[in-house]
Design a protein around this nucleic acid. Structure first.
Lengths: 238, 238
DNA sequence: TCAAAAGTGTTCGATATACACCCATGC
DNA sequence: GCATGGGTGTATATCGAACACTTTTGA
């Protein structure tokens, strides 16, 4: 019997999106090797445990990263190129962070969404976490840049299938303007604000509150909320 | 250093769709254990090799199955539940087919498409392959039934992103009626034939041939072909 | 009174849906 | 001539895109 079947470690890596009223950001962590002055950022991730499903592993990584128990997440691809972990620096880091002689590493990539103003309970092993604008990402280890690139097309497909997820990126109370800017950032194009108002008006699950902005030097905008129940009612009736 | 990280084999499993002018079918293979009279069908798949990417492994499985070098395929999900390979029969089979003591197995699932009338060059290790209608699937080992279920929603998403792939399920020459039935099977609903004709007429890449059906006991239908060049021109101009 | 962002309606074209009859062929 | 499936057109509804001005507020 051949024994040249792969026998390997498997990891999960998470691309966590956040939105800061201006652009999309991704949450990166600092790799805990000794510093040489250069920043050394990567996607948060972990090898998975023996009795752990990949979804559970992704949830664990996100919990360690943010302190949030059940974050919305979505698996989007397995990356398994034989040479994805062949850079000497990356291999050295694997030796140190996990164990020696990990010659190959398969990873399962996840998308997740997080409010950027959320206090991140950095329970974790990570020295430092950092929101990084998607158009100014550093060079990252392994194939993390490629994973992020792929995640950008996936997030759109996700939102089209499930429009509720965008609200994970906004505060509980938000203005139409915030939602508008978020859509513009995700689709990377201008969206006519008048048509956008109409579109939102047809979403029964985006509901106006009585509350308005305060202390703004212009007309105060109304706050809206996302109503999960209305959304579910709508979706189950289809 | 903890050593309770998973260190495991990884497989690929392929859900190959075919269309027989009536319904969608999936290509299953017979598991080569000694028979007890009961059919024992599963998704075609394989452990992956040391120096092999998962996409390459899926291509290899499909080649061994059909004799076709580069089939259209699409990765859609990693299945990694810790107990997906815990059924005693399944474990016994793994022992025999691969090697002993595979206590856990992670699989990466792929979609692929194949013309059912294609001569399958069964190059392979498989005793027997069988097209099986999707609404009459047998009980399969591991979580293969779950994988197939998930694949049904994925195939729709795939076609919406890339309408060219449906033609992989039809002969090179096909009638509008065949295409119509195929769409009805994929979406599992009736589609008005007059509106369907109009829709097809807007697809510049579906082109009429001079040829018509022969020896049919009704008005002969015109054959059409899918023109890849027109399709690519259209897609790159968008 | 000015600056800055909020909020609002109409028109047009494209696309999707609903719906019914005549045509060609083999038997 | 009849059964079988092939092929066609029109009317309506819906959706998305284009487009500009008035309102509110604080400074």
């Amino acid at each position: 019997m051949k024994t040249n079947f792969i026998h390997t470690y498997v990891s999960v890596d998470c691309v966590v999106f956040g939105f800061d009223d201006d652009q999309l950001n991704i949450l990166l962590v600092q790799r805990d090797v000794d510093k040489t002055g250069v920043k050394d950022l990567k996607l948060p991730g972990s090898l998975i445990y023996n009795e752990e499903d990949v979804d559970d592993a992704a949830n664990r990584v996100l919990f360690e990263l943010t302190g949030i128990k059940k974050m919305t997440l979505r698996q989007f691809r397995c990356f398994a190129s034989p040479d994805r972990a062949s850079d000497p620096d990356d291999m050295k880091w694997l030796d140190k962070a996990y164990q020696p002689n990990i010659n190959r590493l398969i990873t399962v990539a996840y998308l997740s969404l997080c409010k950027v103003d959320r206090k991140l309970n950095n329970i974790s092993k990570y020295k430092q976490t950092e929101w990084c604008p998607i158009d100014r990402l550093p060079q990252m280890p392994f194939d993390h840049n490629q994973i992020v690139k792929k995640s950008l097309t996936e997030i759109r497909a996700w939102i089209e299938r499930n429009p509720a997820v965008v609200f994970e990126l906004l505060p509980h109370k938000f203005t139409i303007s915030q939602l508008h800017k978020l859509y513009e950032a995700i689709y990377n194009k201008n969206i006519d604000i008048r048509n956008f108002h109409k579109k939102v008006a047809t979403m029964s699950y985006v509901q106006p509150l009585d509350e308005k902005q305060k202390d703004v030097s212009h007309r105060a905008a109304r706050y809206f909320k996302f109503d999960k129940k209305s959304y579910n009612r709508l979706k189950t009736s289809m």
